[in-house]
Design a protein around this nucleic acid. Sequence first.
DNA 1: AGCACCTTAACGCTGCGTCAACGTTC
DNA 2: TGAACGTTGACGCAGCGTTAAGGTGC
Lengths: 171, 171
Amino acid sequence: VNVPGRKPKTQRRRKDGFLTTGEMARLSKSTLRTVRFYEEQGLLEPISRTVGGHRLFREAELAKLRLMSDLRAAGFGLEEVREIVDLKRGHSTGADAARRAITELGKKIAQMHERARLLSRLAADLEASRRQLDACTRCEDPRFPVNCGQCHVMTSAPLAKALRVLWNTES
Amino acid sequence: VNVPGRKPKTQRRRKDGFLTTGEMARLSKSTLRTVRFYEEQGLLEPISRTVGGHRLFREAELAKLRLMSDLRAAGFGLEEVREIVDLKRGHSTGADAARRAITELGKKIAQMHERARLLSRLAADLEASRRQLDACTRCEDPRFPVNCGQCHVMTSAPLAKALRVLWNTES
DNA sequence: AGCACCTTAACGCTGCGTCAACGTTC
DNA sequence: TGAACGTTGACGCAGCGTTAAGGTGC
């Protein structure tokens, strides 16, 4: 029996080794809703159900869910995720499948690099903005915020692009 | 008069220097719908309208829209975007505003670095998967796809995590 | 005059979040 | 037995995409 008021330190695993919906959610940092939704969409499949109707998943499905969550977080839509996890399907030979998968993965990887470049460029610009804002922590001009555009901080040469938007305005 | 069948090489700019909705969209790589939606949400504001009702924006609004588009592409929701572009507002002194902006920007930048790390880890794993799949382009095993899990390619030590999901399955 | 461009209004879609009401597990 | 956990609907929401029907700019 569970002792109330005392949480189990180790997650109790089922004796059959299968995972419940909640375990899938926790171990993949997603949610019950997402697991069920992905099943609805045919992206996950429980190996069976308990007599009471609870879903039971194999470990392989957890790995799949983790990959899919990462792909979603990386900015791919569910259809693209589906294409990726289905890459092996629909080919008669392994060599064919591998060749197709290699080219498709190449495209996705390229998209990720593009996104990473955008991200780091933006991050760099925001960091520059942040640094340049340091001068403003000593601002004593009572005409704030309307006159920031005339202030020497905002007019001295290479102003970060974001800062122009964030600070160099009348309002 | 415009000569039909011949597109203008240089974008015609209005004599007053203002930008139409379409120009805003094109120059920010977004869409008409997005510009209008952002106006509805109070994120953009046309300086005026033509007598016929067409919106006219200043260049500063274009810069703002570009920043907002980048922030959206970087994974921030519209509310977070709004917080960022409104950082200057609601403070009585410039020094106050700058200090708050510095700490808030710090948080956003940290989130971006986190996302970038996730992205590059996933990209690296997909690249490893892609490389390891090269061996499979020479696969001649007729038991594909059901027996990939027993193949030496999939059992030889450090298999990329994604590849385990993509290939190491029965179906 | 004619064509590219713009307008509002309205509905559609994705990817879940969030109840409610109720059943299961151990 | 009771606390934790799971089930199926059903509706809600963000952030636009996408027509439709029509007016504007030059």
